[in-house]
Design a protein around this nucleic acid. Structure first.
Lengths: 334, 334
DNA sequence: TTGAAAGCGTTACCAC
DNA sequence: GTGGTAACGCTTTCAA
């Protein structure tokens, strides 16, 4: 920490003008090699650092990206959700690789102005939204006039905003094909029914079932988003079921973990009696027992892509949405 | 989003001075009720919002708190670590309750200046460090001259910096007593051996074993921090063990999950043959099978406390470190 | 290569 | 109760 409080003071000590110091420290503009070295050494010795706020005001950029996690109806739902937390971590890494800071905000979307309010404050240069959930319309509207925004989530035709997410339909198809290959014939789909992403995954499953002539057998097991509630939902439904499925596609890894617990509670062996496959590729999936077979969305890669696209939009480019290739990861639950 | 770009423009449209607008909008200073309403309505209609950077510069505060996650030797260790992610989430909530934003930074501590650099930039009003890990000395030094900093972690006697964390020794004692009550007699302690927190937990365990006359039986199972590596470490050690323990205290929930997997891999029944207890109280502990008995550090409560202390330091108070009461949560793994 | 000075968009002091 | 205006600490023209 420095005892010098601003550039002016530092310039006096260095015996040059503030302009020269600024140039020397930022590396921009012409300064003699000698001065630059002298200034740099002095700054290091005194621990001087230019004030970021003042610089931001002058340069009209903050070098900060806002990451927004819209909390859905279930207000408490995301607090400890492994998906959002994991994604945030990856984004933090990707952003800091490019010299950007990450301003984290969890917002309860209220009305249709929450995004505008956030943007208007000028605290950030750009925005990343994790998950469209119920806010698809708001995001879509804002995207028409605010460019530096990239969203993690699904992609629908005609969509204006730039999103990154896995090919959910393909991923769903991948999951169900794997179960069929493993010999499953009575298939269930477990998970939330809301949100564009889950819907697409289910569509992928249905399509393959139709092609295979198994569509009659599909059992739907709707559940809440939140882990604890999901477990209860699934257990209640499986408990009273006429014929137990022999394979379950879960809409997310979190749901899949709930499914595993529910089956465990009912004393049903996985993968012996029922096989289970998740969706996301969260690290935690490898840590449960049995380790979870899943469709990997390559979140780290996705985070890198989001940041890359955002930086390009910041630079004035227009960018298209991107699909990430879903990858089957086979572990012990199938 | 607004088409108005600054206060001056807005003031012209409103037909009053910038000073009046500022007062009307911020609620500070005397303004007639009539003007305030008129200005507020116009601001709402035009979507005008004062620029945060300019305000920050003028007021000399950013209303932003930096949350630092120092990455230890194992650079990749925290990327997806549920503990850090969960803590960050709780902090985000607590901070936003008080109108503060959260600037998230993962830092690779390099040398002893990383904290100074962060502080010197003036991007934040205060700092929260999650975990002291190997940086205890640096934190301690900085705390002597930089006051608005609160650390999640252990507390040692004579420590200068303000920390919040559970009473690790007591928590360790709580864990081992529970295992003994459940009939365990050959006890093992699994987990990382580095860091002040794990050490204290182990001491708590040892002390109770001494008091009970069981101290001869303690088996130590050191492991890495990172989940995957921890699993391997534990499995390797249990595989070749002369006499299997009948109770295992894990240094953290993440370690405990690794222990559960290792036992599963060796076909050992939990809690039938071996009982396992974790430490942290992470939500994910309730989702594994069998659901994990653990010592709850009340992270949400802890996060609230950290923020509370930080705000008081920001206001000039001096604050003492706080211990959180560890609570035993019994689930199915014991 | 360097320095003087004009902003960046607010807030807060001081008059009126 | 309201308006003028000087900061806040920096970057970046423009001149020298």
């Amino acid at each position: 920490m420095s005892n010098i409080k601003n550039l002016k003071e530092f310039a006096q000590l260095a015996g040059v003008s503030t302009a020269t110091i600024s140039r020397a420290l930022s590396g921009t503009g012409r300064v003699s090699e000698e001065t630059r070295e002298r200034v740099a050494a002095l700054a290091e010795r005194l621990g001087y650092q230019p004030n970021a706020t003042a610089r931001n005001l002058r340069t009209q950029r903050t070098m900060t990206i806002g990451v927004l996690v819209p909390l859905g109806h279930e207000a408490a739902q995301h607090l400890s959700d492994p998906f959002f937390n994991t994604m945030t971590g990856f984004l933090a890494d990707a952003l800091s690789d490019h010299g950007y800071d990450l301003l984290l905000s969890r917002v309860l979307p209220k009305g249709d102005r929450w995004l505008d309010r956030y943007i208007g404050s000028g605290k950030v240069d750009g925005i990343i939204v994790i998950g469209q959930s119920t806010e698809f319309a708001v995001i879509e509207t804002v995207s028409r006039r605010y460019l530096p925004m990239v969203v993690w989530g699904g992609q629908v035709s005609g969509q204006n905003h730039c999103s990154v997410g896995s090919d959910n339909r393909k991923g769903g198809a991948l999951a169900i094909r794997h179960l069929i290959e493993r010999g499953c014939r009575r298939i269930a789909f477990a998970g939330p029914t809301q949100g564009p992403e889950f819907g697409e995954r289910l569509q992928g499953v249905k399509q393959v079932l139709r092609e295979t002539g198994l569509s009659e057998t599909l059992i739907e097991l709707p559940s809440h988003f939140e882990p604890g509630a999901a477990f209860e939902d699934i257990r209640a439904q499986l408990e009273g079921i006429a014929a137990m499925p022999d394979g379950i596609v879960a809409g997310s890894d979190v749901t899949a973990i709930g499914v595993l617990r529910a089956l465990q509670a009912l004393d049903i062996d996985v993968p012996g009696q029922v096989k289970v496959i998740g969706y996301d590729g969260l690290p935690v999936g490898a840590q449960v027992s049995p380790p979870l077979t899943t469709i990997d969305q390559q979140l780290r890669h996705g985070a890198g892509m989001i940041v890359d696209l955002l930086l390009r939009r910041l630079a004035g480019e227009t960018t298209e949405s991107r699909m990430i290739e879903p990858i089957l990861i086979v572990r012990a639950s199938t």
